[in-house]
């Protein structure tokens, strides 16, 4: 029944042929051609199913996997980077705080040291001044003693010259020194109280 239908349908196109006795294979159902088609199609389908589709599908799946992996890896890298950045920022903040602290401490230390240095300098100066004053006083005292001794000698000598009489040198000297002790030499010591 199907065959009749098939042969009837192409009759519409048989008009172009003009030949009634034999239909062109174009519009005629040719069993040989159908069998060849079936064989060629079947063979192609089997070969493709065995050798083409699995391989193509495999490569495409592999690529899909690769893309997925790449996306995951990119996401991971990014989150890692974010983490590292956050950590870095945290550290930077800490470092800044530390730096500020160190600077602060250094400044304080410098101030302390400066103050200490100033203090030490002042003490040293005072010490030096004190030492100088002591030296001066000692020198003054020594000079005064010297003067005193000189004056006593000179007085003895002068008295001898005036009186032409030599007193016992020792008693003479005693006399002068007694007299000199009564004289105030304070003015020679630069007006300083003694």
């Amino acid at each position: 029944m199907v065959g009749e239908l098939l042969n009837a349908a192409p009759l519409l196109l048989a008009a172009t042929e003009g030949a009634e006795e034999e239909l062109s294979p174009l519009v005629k159902v040719v069993p040989g051609l159908m069998i060849w088609t079936l064989l060629a199609f079947g063979a192609a389908m089997i070969v493709l199913k065995k050798f083409a589709w699995p391989k193509i599908s495999e490569v495409l799946d592999e690529r899909q996997q690769l893309i997925n992996d790449s996306i995951s890896s990119a996401e991971k890298t990014r989150s890692d980077a974010d983490k590292i950045l956050a950590e870095y920022r945290q550290r930077l903040t800490e470092a800044r705080e530390q730096a500020d602290e160190i600077l602060d401490r250094a400044r304080k230390a410098a101030e302390t040291t400066e103050a200490q240095a100033v203090e030490a300098g002042r003490e040293k100066r005072e010490e030096l001044v004190e030492a100088a004053r002591r030296d001066i006083e000692a020198e003054t005292r020594r000079a005064l003693d010297e003067i005193r001794k000189e004056v006593a000698d000179l007085t003895v000598l002068a008295t001898e010259r005036v009186t032409r009489k030599t007193l016992d040198a020792e008693s003479q000297k005693q006399l002068v020194e007694d007299a000199l002790r009564e004289i105030d030499f304070s003015s020679l010591a630069g007006g300083r109280d003694n």
């Binding site: 060849w36 083409a52 490569v59 592999e62 690769l66």
Partner: peptide, 22 residues
């Protein structure tokens, strides 16, 4: 023509499939 079409179908697809790269 039928056989040529089948052969081309198979050849093109199998050759490309075999040398396919990710």
């Amino acid at each position: 023509y039928i056989i040529l079409a089948a052969v081309l179908t198979v050849l093109v697809m199998v050759l490309v499939a075999r040398t396919m790269k990710v």
